[in-house]
C-alpha cells in the first residue's frame, strides 16, 4: 500500500461526503460551498491520475467561474432562505430507493467487467504538450474546438438576451 492509495481513499471520502452535503444542506449557499469542496477533491483525483493540465483547468473553470456564477445568482435573487418548501416524505423515500437501485444496477453491470486493450500506461499523456498536440496537431479535434467557440458566442448572446429586462 503506497501513499497514493491513502490519498485516493481520503479524496473519495471527501468527495462523497460533500456531494451528499450538496443534496441535503438546508441553505443553498452551503450547498454551493460543499460543491466547491467536491470539485477540489475531484481535481485531486485528476492529479493522482497524472492529468495536471485538466486539474488546473477544472479548478479554474468550475471553482473559479461556474460556482461564482451560482453564488452570484443566489445572492442576487436573495435565495439564501432555509424555508424552502420540501417535497412530501414519501416522494423523498421513493427517490432514495430509486437512486440506490440505479447505483446497484451500475455496480452489478460493472462488477464482472474486464477492460480489454490496456496497454502500458503512459505517464505523459496528461501534460500540456501532449494534450496540445492531440488537440491541434492531428486535425482530429480542430473542428470541434472551433465549433465550441461558436457555441460560447451563442451562449453569451443567449444569456445576455434572456436576462435583459424587457424594454417595452
Amino acid at each position: 500500500m503506497g501513499i497514493t492509495v491513502y490519498i485516493f481513499w481520503f479524496l473519495s471520502f471527501v468527495a462523497l461526503i460533500s456531494a451528499l452535503n450538496v443534496v441535503f444542506a438546508k441553505s443553498p449557499v452551503h450547498s454551493v460551498l460543499s460543491l466547491i469542496i467536491t470539485f477540489f477533491a475531484i481535481a485531486g483525483h485528476y492529479l493522482l491520475l497524472n492529468a495536471q493540465f485538466l486539474a488546473a483547468v477544472h479548478i479554474i473553470v468550475y471553482a473559479g467561474a461556474i460556482m461564482v456564477l451560482f453564488l452570484y445568482v443566489i445572492m442576487m435573487l436573495n435565495l439564501n432562505k432555509e424555508t424552502e418548501p420540501h417535497k412530501k416524505n414519501y416522494i423523498k423515500f421513493i427517490s432514495v430507493i430509486a437512486s440506490c437501485l440505479l447505483m446497484i444496477t451500475f455496480v452489478a453491470a460493472f462488477r464482472g467487467a474486464e477492460i480489454e486493450g490496456a496497454t502500458s500506461p503512459n505517464d505523459s499523456i496528461g501534460l500540456v504538450e501532449n494534450l496540445g498536440k492531440v488537440l491541434f496537431d492531428q486535425n482530429q479535434f480542430l473542428l470541434p474546438f472551433e465549433v465550441s467557440s461558436i457555441l460560447f458566442l451563442a451562449a453569451m448572446v443567449g444569456a445576455v438576451y434572456l436576462s435583459k429586462k424587457e424594454l417595452h
Partner: peptide
C-alpha cells in the same frame, strides 16, 4: 484515458467542461 494510455478521453473532458460552462 489514464489506464488505457489514450489522451482522447482527456480532450473529451475538455470539451465537456466547455459545454458545461455555456
Amino acid at each position: 484515458s489514464r489506464y488505457l494510455g489514450d489522451s482522447s478521453g482527456q480532450v473529451f473532458v475538455f470539451f465537456i467542461m466547455a459545454v458545461a460552462a455555456a
